[in-house]
Simulated scan of single mutants.
Amino acid sequence: MEPMLSGRLIEGGHRLDVRVYFEDTDFSGVVYHARYLHFLERGRTDYLRLHGIGHRELMDGRFGEPMAFAVRHMEIDFLRPARIDDVLTVETRTALLGGARIVLDQRILLDGEPLMTARVKVAVISPEGKPRRMPTAVAERLGAGPAAE
């Protein structure tokens, strides 16, 4: 796996650079608001991946019973627009690690300036969609901070 393709772990979190393409924008070249959700999802997925927690491994039961993460609630604050060809940085940090959920703080930055912020509550669920407790191995991987950048 190419480390930069999945971003990089930083102290307390993760950073992923993404470029804004034509498909991400509206007719005026400004990023369409729903596309930010895609960028945030990529950040969350690669944050987990670099901690050794891939979605496929979760569903295959690598950490015990098969499980998945599902976004339960999201609060978003749009601050400034991004535009075509911008290179954005998606930051993801664990704010709270509970028995059956994770709360993540995410930001999308352009040249270090925040364009949007999000607080994302993610539930741990079974393949049938029922809530379940987070396996200890998953909690330990997300609770341990990586070396500083």
Score class of each variant (00 low, 15 high):
residue 120 V to Q: 07
residue 130 K to V: 06
residue 70 A to M: 12
residue 104 L to Y: 01
residue 91 E to F: 06
residue 82 A to H: 11
residue 76 I to D: 01
residue 105 D to T: 00
residue 80 R to H: 15
residue 77 D to H: 14
residue 129 G to M: 03
residue 79 L to K: 11
residue 107 R to Y: 02
residue 77 D to A: 15
residue 109 L to C: 04
residue 82 A to E: 12
residue 111 D to M: 10
residue 93 R to Y: 09
residue 97 L to Q: 03
residue 97 L to W: 02
residue 123 A to S: 14
residue 81 P to E: 10
residue 123 A to K: 09
residue 92 T to H: 05
residue 115 L to D: 06
residue 87 V to I: 15
residue 90 V to S: 08
residue 69 F to H: 01
residue 109 L to K: 03
residue 69 F to C: 01
residue 96 L to F: 14
residue 68 A to D: 11
residue 99 G to D: 14
residue 95 A to M: 12
residue 67 M to W: 00
residue 131 P to G: 02
residue 118 A to R: 04
residue 78 F to C: 06
residue 88 L to Q: 08
residue 92 T to P: 02
residue 118 A to M: 03
residue 121 K to N: 12
residue 69 F to D: 00
residue 122 V to Q: 11
residue 77 D to K: 14
residue 107 R to E: 12
residue 123 A to V: 13
residue 113 E to C: 10
residue 132 R to T: 13
residue 111 D to A: 15
residue 102 I to C: 09
residue 123 A to C: 09
residue 86 D to C: 12
residue 72 R to M: 04
residue 80 R to M: 11
residue 77 D to I: 08
residue 71 V to L: 13
residue 108 I to L: 10
residue 98 G to M: 10
residue 117 T to N: 09
residue 89 T to C: 11
residue 100 A to W: 01
residue 71 V to M: 12
residue 106 Q to I: 03
residue 76 I to S: 01
residue 90 V to E: 05
residue 125 I to E: 07
residue 97 L to I: 06
residue 79 L to C: 02
residue 80 R to L: 13
residue 86 D to N: 14
residue 81 P to H: 10
residue 108 I to C: 07
residue 119 R to S: 09
residue 76 I to W: 00
residue 89 T to H: 04
residue 118 A to N: 03
residue 126 S to P: 00
residue 101 R to N: 13
residue 112 G to K: 08
residue 76 I to A: 06
residue 114 P to C: 05
residue 106 Q to K: 01
residue 114 P to I: 09
residue 123 A to Y: 02
residue 90 V to H: 03
residue 95 A to D: 13
residue 113 E to S: 14
residue 84 I to A: 08
residue 73 H to C: 01
residue 86 D to F: 12
residue 107 R to S: 11
residue 67 M to G: 00
residue 78 F to I: 10
residue 97 L to Y: 02
residue 95 A to G: 07
residue 103 V to S: 02
residue 68 A to T: 14
residue 100 A to H: 08
residue 124 V to W: 09
residue 67 M to C: 01
residue 115 L to M: 07
residue 68 A to S: 13
residue 111 D to T: 11
residue 88 L to H: 04
residue 97 L to H: 02
residue 101 R to Q: 13
residue 85 D to F: 00
residue 126 S to T: 14
residue 115 L to N: 04
residue 81 P to N: 10
residue 83 R to Q: 11
residue 91 E to K: 12
residue 68 A to E: 05
residue 103 V to F: 00
residue 131 P to M: 05
residue 79 L to G: 08
residue 115 L to H: 07
residue 107 R to T: 13
residue 67 M to Y: 00
residue 69 F to V: 03
residue 67 M to S: 01
residue 102 I to L: 14
